[in-house]
Design a protein around this nucleic acid. Sequence first.
DNA 1: CCAATTTTAGGGACCGCTCCCATGAAACAG
DNA 2: CTGTTTCATGGGAGCGGTCCCTAAAATTGG
Lengths: 343, 343
Amino acid sequence: MIYLIYMKNHQITIFDLARELNISKSTVSRVLTGHPNVHPDTRKRVLDLAEKLDYQRNMIAIQLATQQSKTIGIIIPEILSSYFPHVIAAIQEEARNEGYNVIISQSNESYETEVTNAKVMLDNRVDGVIVSITKETLNFDHLKVFQKKGIPIVFFNRVCNEMVVPKVIVDDYEGAFGAVEHLILSGRKRIAHLSGPSSLAISVKRLNGYLAALKKHNIPADPELIISYDFSKEKIAIYVNHLINLANPPDAIFAINDPTAIDTIQIIKKNGLSVPEDIAVVGFSDDYVSALIEPPLTTVAQPVREIGITAAQLLFDQIKKDSSQWKTPVKVLKTKLIIRKSS
Amino acid sequence: MIYLIYMKNHQITIFDLARELNISKSTVSRVLTGHPNVHPDTRKRVLDLAEKLDYQRNMIAIQLATQQSKTIGIIIPEILSSYFPHVIAAIQEEARNEGYNVIISQSNESYETEVTNAKVMLDNRVDGVIVSITKETLNFDHLKVFQKKGIPIVFFNRVCNEMVVPKVIVDDYEGAFGAVEHLILSGRKRIAHLSGPSSLAISVKRLNGYLAALKKHNIPADPELIISYDFSKEKIAIYVNHLINLANPPDAIFAINDPTAIDTIQIIKKNGLSVPEDIAVVGFSDDYVSALIEPPLTTVAQPVREIGITAAQLLFDQIKKDSSQWKTPVKVLKTKLIIRKSS
DNA sequence: CCAATTTTAGGGACCGCTCCCATGAAACAG
DNA sequence: CTGTTTCATGGGAGCGGTCCCTAAAATTGG
């Protein structure tokens, strides 16, 4: 202790422990990393002293020495809806089990921010990233960098088609098909679709599911009833009002996601019409809110936990293996139609 | 380039840049860190080569050398409600502006997990932490460690009374008082309160606000109507049913938070009673959902963005200053009663 | 034109740890 | 009793930067 007595505000290092016990730092390091070749007595002495001096290992130094950050990054468009926090929570659990930290960055649906965030992840030498792109992302150079540098990347939800890497998605086509077919079978004839930006594969797939269901039941698709919007909340009112005031208005609306569906319901109600009597509404995702609103929303549920867990597992699979052995599976998880009062 | 041609899978370091340009790594470092004393020509050559070789700085090495991680930690009880993601988003914005990374950890309302997470933050040498404790946290040793090591800590929402550090809270007492007074003024006579765990200061303050409002209007507080619960969703049904079946049931319920209030409404409706006719319900926080449910929930809104921004600012204030200059302000932000149909 | 400054650049210790290699001692086998 | 393993430990070179201290070069001033 005599050595340490004059050192204030100095973090205890393995060197301090070593000096105190008159052994080398190599031996201390061996004890701390669980290396077998250490005499039990020595091990105990080190551990006891570490405990006594409240030694705290310096992950930064370890990261530099071992050349791995033990950190994974998550890049998502936003964190305020119910979907992403659920996926994140699941990913974090898996990461904790693997001894990894997680850094999360929201792109706020901005391509610029996404690029910046990707750069930050790179600077911080993440061992892998899980990403869901923004609605604006058309160029993928900032994500391809990960591939180029041999850093595992996994997409979920909003994936990049031109990159061949593991992905976790749900069967959007099937989910949309089921939702629209349900509307048809409950007697709806004119079903509108509030679609998402065509840059996103989910928008296209859900649109295709919608079209296929119509086709199967011999209902001609009316372009007037298909509106693609950019997820900006203000627009919903405009589009819904527009649909309502059509000469031949829809008797149902299939929305690209739950937040849109929920807003749609509010607008319809504001117009003095009722859901589902006048217009039925169906959403996609089964957000936490959806069961609680009035009327409760019929929606296509996604297995959020499973999505997160699967994405994390695909990532850790890669992290653990040599890049030559990487597989690029695309996991398609099943959705489930939850029928509630809105349809 | 001749040197680099044989090096595969080797990250470009400042040493590589230096060798390539026949200058020292010190000079390269100076350029990269923006140090003024570098010849403009040299600066340009370095920058150009860095660009050309796609040099990427290694934050881990920088962190080790500068002894700061440029990372702050957020420890929260959960991430699935609407409150925390909003606060997090605000904190992250501030952090980004300051050039800091954020690592987030959910305690899942478990004391054990919170302790583990605090340890992880310490291992990773965060430059500061922002925390909201779990309902189980009674011992604060794991958080006092930060103080002891001179790492700034800021509490928000669920704070630790026994630690003298900066805190950001809302005026829970005032908010609760206003909510309950509103119920009284709208004619309610028997107002129940679903309170939180008494370990949390917010529970106590909101309870006191409730009691004070009753007292002001000469309504005796009935212990039968005050139930303290532990935030476990299953219990809500039990308590609400119990209240409804009382010989002298309440005509209003003031819930500790919105999720509780929302569940309360569902249970009341399931019992064939209506809100607000039979029983009025008021919540706390103004979650995103609250305006959408049926009936829309009267609630005490918290300035979530402001909470996050303030917490972050208090943290960075400390990070930038020597610990001898640290202040320990407790910022009390104003709440706002939002009256909707549930009352 | 030379001394005094100011710029610009290089050298090298250091941050805290890992991990390979070397070494001596103890244990084992023949 | 000696040669070969195995075990326990020490030594030291990285990991990729920062930053202090010098030294040489360029600029300034009298």
